[in-house]
Design a protein around this nucleic acid. Structure first.
Lengths: 172, 172
DNA sequence: TACCATAGTTCAATGAACGAACCGAGGGGG
DNA sequence: CCCCCTCGGTTCGTTCATTGAACTATGGTA
């Protein structure tokens, strides 16, 4: 979103954030990374995003310190993209946005529900556990398929998320 | 963001939300509406956004039920854009995003701080009052200029926000 | 050697954003 | 009555980003 036509004049932290995660596809890439997607091909298959755009978005996120690109095997050389601690903290905004979309746009039952690993209770739109009352970080969360989920897609990521899955843990 | 090249295949409430508020400029328009901006010209002056884009974004937000367009005087006929209850609930996502940007991207002191009107204490990134411990809705919040704010702009909105201002209350 | 998998890059066509100019309804002053 | 101003847009040519298909590079496997 850079290149002169950006939000620089805004002197606002929301505008700063949008410079990094406000471009088309970017937040969906982050969401997938939270689910545990790490490989180029898995992002590609799950998002139906043009390869060139995915490549550019991953690079932007790495540069911004949201993702870390690291070698996970040498032969053949393969890299994976993993959320950094800064990326982990996007958990709250992402959850809040998804919760808003769920409540005001979808009109059906939730597609995915998030549970506190420690106690199994659901967490709300601010990542608070209904039972414990504590703020739950993304590492302590499990995603489960919700009643509103339609199992349309058959890419590896969609298939893996049809059963409960711990956030951040690698898919598949 | 519509027209075939959208996020429809995603069956995800985050993607649904991004269809509405994920386009360039849209969330900044919503932020301004939260500050109390209501008139076309004020959005224009504060955002430095092309008129055509602003016009289109406002129409999209009205159609999505985030903003309400209403006549506030008849001679000459003038309309204003006001947040609906659905728009009010974007408070949490917007605050969470701004908080993330503040903590991880700006590197300076906060530009704006949000206080609970009832008690005067600051609220955190999940809109919880530090003192009361309650979730604070946007109507009970006051924005104040923070130590990191640089008073560069001189449009009516920027000027009004250089002093404490109650969220949603009309500017100027 | 041929073939496959992964992770990209390149490129032409399309669509969106930009910014300047224009438009129209309605005052207000002279 | 005429001119000019404001507000809230629309129009339009240029520039920029996205799309989707084809191509490249590297290394492994049969």
């Amino acid at each position: 979103m850079a290149l002169g036509k950006n939000y620089d004049a805004q002197d606002c932290s929301l505008a700063r954030a949008l410079e990094v995660i406000g471009e088309r596809w970017t937040l969906l890439v982050v969401r997938d990374a939270m689910y545990g997607v790490r490989r180029f091909g898995d992002f590609l298959a799950h998002l139906d995003i043009p390869r060139a755009v995915l490549s550019q978005r991953l690079a932007t996120l790495v540069e911004a310190g949201v993702l870390d690109k690291r070698r996970y095997q040498d032969s053949p050389p393969r890299d994976e993209y993993v959320l950094t601690p800064v990326g982990h903290e996007l958990w709250l905004p992402v959850l809040a946005l998804a919760d808003w979309g769920e409540r005001h746009l979808s009109g059906t039952a939730p597609r995915r529900v998030f549970h506190h690993l420690a106690c199994g209770s659901r967490i709300d739109g601010t990542a608070r556990c209904a039972a414990c009352g504590v703020q739950v970080s993304i590492g302590e969360v499990e995603v489960r398929p919700g009643p509103g989920l339609k199992g349309i897609r058959n890419d590896p990521v969609s298939v893996a998320l049809r059963t409960p899955h711990r956030m951040l843990h690698p898919i598949p």
